[in-house]
Write a protein that binds this DNA or RNA. Structure first.
Length: 868
RNA sequence: GGGCGCUUAGCUCAGUUGGUUAGAGCAUCUCUUUUACAAGGAGAGGGUCGGGGGUUCGAAUCCCUCAGCGCCCACCA
């Protein structure tokens, strides 16, 4: 320690305060850590001496919430552990400001909206600054200008996040900060896409896709969620083409009859076998459609025969594709019924019926159709109300529709069995914490029903970096896109110009046009290891940190963030992007509900830091087992604060003892046994942390700590005071144990451990070596069964205490006479510690008796107490 | 419908290859304040370990089964 330069760590003068306290210790140590740079990543370190973390970039719209405090603390405990193990820890922070939440905030704050067709204005200033008047119609601005505003606005939030994360004690190297809409992220994202395109892993396709009619964009399977919605079964009669009566189908979407292209029944369903191959005519619209068979038709569902529409749900898409049906689309991208009726509707009455619903929303059209069906007699009985699961975009407000559109995809195994198997195999190359989380990964991949749709018809985000030639016919040539050079990235095809063209040719015949779409936010987030590790611009650094050691994240985004990162890394580097995936649980409110603003059960982190201290909040977070959903608990923070206070007081006591002979060797059995027990704790804690189980490490250390305070210290403190011949054994053992315990607690309680460390050591505890059993036990003798010794002596002490409590007297009361009955072996152990036992119990005369029973019995005669 | 997790004291939870009498914290009650700590300390009460069956000398722990809660996924005419 003496070789640490003084200028690096200027702890307050090494002394123990008279009245130690936890007030304001955070600010002092945050300042010191910053100054001496204890969290700085050492770029010269070799890969095997680096621990790298693919930190989840929090979305910075809004404020830090306790769920983030919860999970980020877990990662930090692991980071601090590895730093003490001598690793150079690559622990970056990123801000996720590329996405809808940021886009919305910028629109509302500045009164602007992004329009890629507007030219970039270098001298642009926003019309408003958070004071947008009601009724203002947003000013359309270019995408580069919009991105500037995003960066400007989010930087304010990011500052607040940084302050809170520092207060929490995250040992992030802030010089490694990135943002997901920043230049480097856009470059990485676009280069990654171009590489996927060059290798054939990304491809465009015109196909039916799930579509959010409010956002006006396609969405990916991973962004769907089911919601309970009221609906109704409608029994509807289709006239048979041969004139032999009706076929009754059941549907929840009668408004789609105009989009009906077939009926389908199961091939083994005898009720319809004679009908297969025949035709029927749709009610109202009088279109002739075939009756076909397909395995996916369910015999026991409805009437067993289903109406196929283009497109009502994903099964319709399968039928449409596999049965080679025509497309008869009636829903537009705005969620309204198209103005023009499908060509198949020939009759005037059909066209008239269609004109009733044209331009209406889906909901309005349904009401109208049901009325018309009822009037025409095609509706059999009344609609029967049900509730059913309907697919929504997770951020959307109306059910998804399916529209046909041209989109970009990345192959993820959803349409390729071999590839799917390869990705499941990649999952086995990761070590999962907890291990059962791997099932969710496998489960997701096995359920994929298509490739990953990455294009979005939005205006803000990382643009698809392509242009298309416009032919003489005025149509874009999508077959051979114009690519940018890697050096040009990031580009925005809406304002940048492809090589060999100039801006005047934009949108003209013989000229070019930019791809209008942006990429899904996950298409960029799936490259966080590459972004954080500077894949695009610092090959040397990237080779030192990638594949990363750890990906911490929440379990509900295994299907999105985790899986998509594996996909990109598989393609780009042929490896899994990390060695370990650490999945954190959710923080629940005290009633085990998911916390949410609408329930009003949100507590702000800053308030808790003020009331309990950062270490106490961290104690709550790190006492939750990895991956387990955990209730928010201020009680647990109180316990954490108690622990921190106790550590202050114990440290004050132990450091304050004379330790004249620093080279003294622990010799007394109780001292040696205590150190052996502690060595076991070191061993278990180390193992636990290597396995990402900070909670077990904390629990083991804490359990030992309280035993140490309550029993061991009570027994040896008199001897330590005395200055007798065995005093040195006690003081050196106390020092050694305290030194070790402080370091064991350091990853979870960084502030209080640094505080007490500073009272007697010259450097930062966080730059110290993690304790080892070797250093604890190197110079002390083997001891047979140290646990037997400690429990036996502990039992005697406990019985003496109980006698005093039952005698309703102070623990200080002397014991006139004590008779211990135990086996010969037990008495030998007890006698070896009798000196300490006498001190702790206030014993006078002691008699020992051997017996054969296993149980130790103790008779206690208390000295008379003088009550004044 | 498939998968995963959970179910242990009033509450929140430990209990890691099966092993004395199942533990901790909080809460409750009793006792205890001049030498590290009252934001302390010493103790007490409180549990048929979700139900049933099995394996074993021995099961909270392993197997089977049932139930409840939660999550992920699929289906959803």
């Amino acid at each position: 320690m003496s070789d640490t330069p003084d200028h690096k760590f200027s702890a307050p003068e090494m002394r123990v305060p008279d009245k130690p306290g936890l007030e304001n210790i955070e600010a002092r140590w945050i300042e010191t850590w910053d100054r001496i740079g204890i969290n700085s990543f050492d770029r010269s370190a070799q890969r095997d001496n680096i621990f790298s973390i693919d930190t989840p970039p929090p979305s910075v719209s809004g404020s830090l919430h306790m769920g983030q405090v919860f999970s980020y603390t877990h990662t930090d405990a692991v980071a601090r552990f590895w730093r003490m193990r001598g690793k150079s820890v690559f622990y970056p922070m990123g801000w996720d400001d590329n996405g809808l939440p940021t886009e919305r905030r910028v629109q509302n704050y500045f009164g602007v909206s992004c329009d890629p067709t507007v030219p970039f204005d270098p001298s642009f200033t926003p019309p408003f600054n958070g004071d947008v008047p009601k009724g203002h119609r947003n000013t359309a601005i270019s995408r580069p200008n919009f991105i500037q505003l995003c960066e400007q606005l989010t930087s304010q939030d990011e500052k607040i996040f940084e302050v809170l994360f520092r207060r929490l004690g995250l040992s992030v190297d802030w010089s490694l900060l990135y943002t997901t809409i920043g230049d480097r992220a856009r470059r990485t994202s676009q280069q990654g896409f171009l590489n996927n395109l060059a290798r054939g892993e990304a491809y465009p396709q015109e196909a039916p896709t799930l579509w959010d009619v409010d956002f006006g964009t396609a969405v990916a399977q991973a962004e769907l969620e089911d919601r309970e919605r009221p609906g109704a079964y409608h029994s509807i009669a289709f006239a048979r083409g041969d004139g032999n009566g009706d076929v009754i189908i059941e549907t929840t979407r009668p408004e789609l009859i105009a989009a009906c292209v077939a009926l389908v029944a199961h091939p083994d369903d005898p009720r319809y076998s004679s009908l297969i191959g025949q035709t029927v005519r749709t009610p109202l619209f009088d279109v002739e459609v075939p009756v076909l068979s397909h395995q996916l038709a369910q015999i026991d569902k409805g009437t067993g025969i289903a109406m196929v529409c283009t497109f009502g749900d994903l099964t319709d898409v399968i039928w449409w594709r596999e049965l080679n049906l025509p497309a008869r689309v009636i829903i537009g991208r705005d969620g309204r019924i198209l103005a023009d009726a499908p060509e198949a509707m020939g009759s005037a009455s059909a066209r008239d019926a269609y004109s009733q619903i044209a331009g209406k929303t889906v909901k309005q059209a349904q009401t109208i159709c049901v009325d018309m069906l009822r009037a025409s007699g095609s509706l059999r009985g009344e609609p029967r109300a049900i509730t059913h699961q309907v697919k929504f975009y997770e951020r959307g407000e109306r059910p998804l529709e399916i529209v046909s559109s041209r989109q970009w995809y990345i192959r993820n195994g959803g349409r390729d069995y071999a590839l799917r198997t390869a990705f499941i195999q990649r999952g086995t190359e990761l070590t999962w914490h907890p291990d059962f989380m791997e099932h969710r990964y496998d489960n997701w991949i096995e359920g994929l029903n298509g490739d990953w749709l990455i294009s979005r018809q939005r205006f803000f985000g990382v643009p698809i970096p392509l242009w298309y030639r416009i032919g003489a016919n005025g149509q874009p040539d999508y077959e051979s896109p114009l690519l940018p050079d890697s050096k040009q990235l990031p580009i925005d095809p809406s304002s940048d110009v492809p090589n060999g063209f100039d801006e005047s040719q934009r949108g003209r015949s013989g000229g070019f046009i930019g791809d209008p779409d942006v990429m899904d936010t996950w298409a960029t987030s799936s490259l966080t290891p590459q972004i954080a590790g500077h894949w695009i611009d610092d090959e040397n650094l990237f080779s030192r940190v990638f594949p990363m050691d750890m990906r911490p994240q929440a379990h509900e985004i295994i299907r999105t963030w985790l899986f998509s990162t594996v996909v990109r890394s598989h393609y780009e580097h042929g490896v899994v992007p990390w060695r370990n995936a650490a999945l954190s649980g959710w923080m629940l409110d005290p009633n085990h509900q998911k916390m949410s603003k609408s329930k009003g059960n949100i507590v702000t982190p800053a308030d808790l830091f003020d009331r309990y201290g950062s270490d106490a909040v961290r104690y709550w977070a790190t006492s939750a087992r990895p991956g387990v959903d955990t209730a928010f608990s201020e009680d647990q923070m109180k316990v954490g604060r108690k622990l921190a206070t106790k550590l202050l007081n114990l440290s004050k006591f132990v450091i304050g003892l004379d330790d004249a002979d620093a080279s003294a060797i622990p010799r007394q059995p109780i001292d040696v046994a205590m150190l052996h027990r502690l060595a076991r704790v070191v061993s278990e804690s180390t193992q636990a942390l290597e396995d990402f189980d900070y909670a077990r490490a904390l629990e083991r250390t804490e359990e030992f700590f309280w035993w140490f305070c309550d029993d061991y210290v009570e027994m040896v403190k008199t001897r330590a005071y005395e200055g007798m011949k065995d005093s040195a054994s006690a003081t050196t053992s106390l020092h050694r144990a305290l030194n070790t315990m402080q370091r064991l607690f350091a990853p979870m309680l960084p502030f209080v451990t640094e505080e007490v460390w500073s009272w007697w050591q010259a450097d930062s505890i966080h730059q110290n070596q993690w304790p080892s059993t070797g250093e604890l036990l190197a110079d002390i003798a083997e001891l047979g069964d140290y646990e037997e010794l400690l429990t036996t002596v502990g039992e005697v002490l406990s019985q003496i205490r109980r006698a005093k409590t039952e005698g309703k007297t102070s623990q200080r009361t002397a014991v006139e006479y004590l008779k211990i009955s135990a086996t010969e072996d037990q008495l030998e152990l007890i006698n070896s510690c009798m000196h300490d036992l006498r001190n702790a119990g206030g014993l006078d005369e002691v008699e020992t008796v051997t017996h054969d029973q296993n149980a130790i019995t103790v008779q206690v005669r208390l000295a008379p107490t003088s009550r004044s």
